[in-house]
Design a protein around this nucleic acid. Structure first.
Length: 785
DNA sequence: CTCGGTCAGTTTTTT
DNA sequence: ACTGACCGAG
């Protein structure tokens, strides 16, 4: 116990030894957050304040959960089994499997990941004659998820001014179909679990009485629904109940998931609703050298919405942050790899080096360069194992064996390998199933003619798998599925299929590994981890959807780590490169419209900087190939926000620390590329309009003067057209006009709002009620009456 | 009706 | 480079 506390600084110790009151710990980057969390759990157990079964710990990633348990086991012998530790999604899944009846789900409900969900949305839109040009499936998906995160079912979902009620109607259809299929998307796991607790007082009470200590990591990244889930479990505000202790750890400066519904406001709400006096601030940084930390502090000071926190370190100043501007993305990659080589020669292990980028697309050039130079690297994230097509195919067969109503899985593999079941048969099937409210699988039984025989072949395969799933051990079943489905043969015949076969073999190992891990967990424990009603197959399928990431296998090899900035959160390296510091890329172009989004980008940059322990390099390219286009950009506004005194500008590769002769200063103005660059921009810091795009091939050198003129002209013209469109209302309909819509029938225009692209008609339809329709979209569907 | 080939548009980040 | 749409052959 003393060992446990002695190694902590006063603030950390204060946090760890808190009583049962709820608390908020503001833990800056590198301030020992994970340590505080695990020490807190160890403290609760060692001081007999809690039994393991009273502890509920929520982490942001599965990896963090695993790490917490590993660290805890090294601190003390602990009955890990009895605690509930995992992500919100993992814990909700666990709860739903246990109470699936009360939650209104079949025992074998499927989990749809992001891409499954997107195809489901597309499918439903198609089946209902809604074109994906009219409403982008991705936007519909976002809308549905946003609604669920707000706790809203389709009937309560908001109508959007621009799109009328169309999104809500799709959501409604989606909701019904998922219930029929017995499938849950990610957000549904949370919402259903929340509703389960809300609607079943006895179940809620059971968990409230059990989890006296609730710990939450990365609290700044929780969404509103997750907060409400926690609030419910804590029992706060319930008369006559002593609320459970909620120990929330977070850092508002590292909130980078707002795009996914994360709500930093949860921190303020938590302080208010749980009556937290003053949060405990952990500001001493044990990770980075002074210059790196000062750069991070300087940058984040530009954000307005902050709880306020300033990191400090006892470590020395260290080296300045190096900034290197390359003429092109290829040169940038070459510079990075050269520098990696230099550090490696001086003794830094490859795995202590990380290359960070804003978007996945940037990894390609870097990978090419690493490959060319023969330096080991491993890409973190990117395409995950369980996201690979061949793996998803095999998993889909298993999902069908588990739950034949899983239409997503059905559609993926019904004709894979090809069995002569084409688009027409499937369309007929979808219509029949839709009209009769049955699954596609069940609809097969009603097929007629030639299609019937072909569908029967598929059905026979699934029926066979259904029998075998209970007979065979999991890994044997995986093998059997790959064989029986015909996938094995298909990839054997494919000249490029060997890697895919290899991956399928790895799926078998993954299954073996999964079963073994569960067995070890259960060894010394009378209470099974896997809940009584979850079979190994169900567990494995959940695992495939929820833990689709974490390339753990590669972790021990000595390789340079390539990853997005998002993926780097929580990690640290001796040497870090942050690449692509160009306006439009970082901050990303889609985020430069609003200050709120821009502040999130800045936090992202803050996260990136604070990954570095000893050395940090920031690089950028004046020209870059992206999506088959060469784009020219100016330097990121974030570079100008970094304190000058912490930076050192470099130019050409081959630079060494002791040689200052090619040291380029960015100069007093702080704008533009390094002095000497043909691309220096002077004067205005207006970043909204200085990316030039031209489709076609790469230029040999910097963009010629004449091209700038022409392209600039094009942009002006476009702008002009936009403005013109805005001035001109151009509504072909006035209030009182009658019109005919192909879906909603006849109606009367009540009013028009907006102009040009934004023109919205409010129409009272004779049979479908009042709707707001965006004219730009509706015009294809309406005619005069 | 199905299949395999070609072509265009594409992506910011992820449990 | 990965997917979805389209087209002509069987």
């Amino acid at each position: 116990m003393n060992d446990l506390l002695d190694s902590l600084n006063p603030e950390q110790k204060a946090a760890v030894t808190l009583g049962e009151k709820s608390a908020l710990i503001l833990a800056g980057a590198g301030s020992g957050k994970t340590r505080v969390l695990t020490s807190r759990i160890a403290y609760l157990l060692q001081s007999d304040m809690a039994y393991p079964s009273e502890i509920l710990a929520v982490t942001f990633t599965n990896k963090a959960a695993k790490e917490m348990l590993t660290r805890l086991s090294t601190m003390m012998p602990v009955n890990v089994r009895a605690m509930w530790v995992g992500t919100f999604h993992g814990l909700c899944n666990r709860m739903l499997r246990l109470h699936h009846n009360e939650a209104g789900l079949p025992a074998s409900f499927a989990i749809l990941d992001q891409s499954d969900q997107l195809s489901a949305v597309k499918r439903i839109m198609k089946a209902n004659g809604i074109s994906d040009e009219e409403f982008k499936p991705r936007e519909v998906q976002n809308y549905i998820n946003r609604c669920k995160e707000e706790g809203l079912r389709a009937k309560d979902a908001p109508i959007n001014f621009q799109r009328g009620s169309a999104f809500r109607e799709i959501y409604d259809l989606y909701e019904k179909i998922l219930i029929r299929e017995g499938a849950c998307d990610f957000a549904e796991l949370l919402l259903r679990s929340y509703e389960l607790l809300k609607n079943h007082p006895l179940i809620l009470e059971h968990y409230q009485n059990r989890f006296h200590f609730i710990l939450i990591d990365e609290f700044q990244d929780t969404n509103k629904l997750q907060y409400r889930w926690i609030k419910l479990l804590s029992g706060i505000g319930e008369p006559g109940r002593r609320p459970n202790s909620v120990f929330a750890v977070g850092d508002d400066d590292q909130s980078i998931y707002a795009f996914r519904g994360a709500n930093v406001g949860n921190m303020q709400d938590f302080v208010r609703e749980f009556k937290i006096g003053e949060p405990i601030r952990l500001e001493q940084n044990y990770r980075s050298q002074g210059n790196i930390l000062d750069a991070a502090n300087g940058l984040i000071a530009n954000n307005s919405q902050r709880l306020g926190k300033k990191l400090w370190t006892e470590a020395g100043e260290g080296d300045k942050v190096r900034v290197y501007s390359a003429p092109s993305d290829v040169d940038e990659a070459a510079y990075v790899v050269d520098t990696v080589k230099e550090y490696a020669d001086l003794g830094t292990p490859y795995k202590e080096m990380a290359i960070l980028y804003r978007s996945n697309a940037q990894s390609r050039v870097l990978e090419a360069e690493f490959t060319r130079r023969g330096i080991p690297y491993s890409v973190y994230g990117g395409l995950r194992f369980f996201d690979r097509a061949e793996i998803k195919n095999a998993i889909s067969y298993m999902r069908l064996a588990e739950n034949t109503a899983d239409d997503s899985a059905f559609l993926r593999v019904v004709n894979l390998p090809a069995r002569g079941i084409g688009a027409k048969t499937i369309e007929t099937l979808i219509n029949f199933a839709g009209d009769n409210g049955i699954s596609l699988y069940d609809a097969c039984g009603y097929a007629k003619g030639a299609a019937a025989a072909k569908l029967e072949v598929f059905r026979a395969i699934i029926e066979d798998l259904r029998e075998k799933k209970d007979e065979l051990p999991l890994s044997k079943f995986v093998d059997y599925t790959v064989e029986k489905s015909g996938l094995k043969e298909m990839y054997e015949l494919d000249p490029n299929g060997s890697e895919r076969l290899e991956n399928l073999r790895e799926l078998t190992s993954a299954a073996t590994g999964y079963v073994d891990a569960e067995a070890i967990d259960e060894e010394d424990e009378e209470e099974s981890v896997r809940d009584e009603n979850m079979t190994a197959l169900q567990g494995f399928l959940s695992h495939a959807s929820l833990e689709a990431g974490e390339n753990q296998a590669k972790a021990d090899q000595d390789a340079v780590q390539l990853m997005t900035v998002h993926a780097s959160k929580g990690l640290e390296f001796n040497l870090v490169f942050i690449t692509g510091l160009e306006d439009g890329l970082f901050p990303h172009g889609n985020s430069m419209g609003s200050n709120k989004d821009l502040e999130e980008e800045r936090r992202l940059m803050y996260v990136a900087i604070t990954r570095a322990r000893k050395n940090l390099y920031i690089t950028l390219a004046e020209r870059r190939m992206l999506h088959g286009t060469t784009r020219y950009s100016s330097q990121s506004m974030f570079l100008r926000e970094l304190p000058e005194e912490n930076l050192k500008w470099l130019s050409k590769p081959g630079y060494t620390d002791s040689d200052d002769s090619d040291d380029y200063s960015s100069g007093g103005s702080g704008y533009g590329f390094a002095r000497g660059s043909k691309f220096s921009r002077r004067g205005s810091s207006d970043w909204s309009n200085n990316n030039y795009r031209e489709s076609g091939r790469t230029y040999n050198s910097n963009m010629p003067e004449w091209a700038k003129g022409i392209l600039g002209g094009k942009l002006e013209k476009q702008q002009e057209n936009k403005i013109r469109a805005k001035i001109d209302n151009g509504s072909p309909y006035k209030s009182g006009d009658r019109l005919l819509h192909e879906k909603f029938g006849a109606g009367t225009v009540l009013s028009t709002k907006g102009v040009g692209e934004e023109l919205v008609l409010q129409i009272k339809f004779d049979r479908s009620g009042v709707k707001d329709l965006l004219y730009r979209i509706a015009k294809k569907k309406i005619s005069d009456l």
